[in-house]
Amino acid sequence: MRNCKKAELICTKIQYKEATILEKIQIRIHLILCRTCRIFVKKNSKLTSLCDQANLKALPAEEKEKMKKILSERQ
């Protein structure tokens, strides 16, 4: 269903706090009607909290570029 796909996308945006007000209203209305999407929202926010909890760290992009450069010089 087209509506559910749209709702899931909005839900992902909400995880990064980047949904517009209109989108938030749309998803509210959809969630009243759609059980599947309610479960999806739950799972999606769980994923966000898991990622926060794990306190994941990654190297910044410029550090990676530096490493690549040094590595290719050594090869």
Partner: peptide
């Protein structure tokens, strides 16, 4: 494939080390 190491594994290794 040492060329792909940084892209594929650096985050995983970094997380492990940190």
């Amino acid at each position: 494939n040492p060329d792909t190491w940084v892209d594929r594994y650096s985050d995983y290794l970094f997380n492990y080390a940190v």
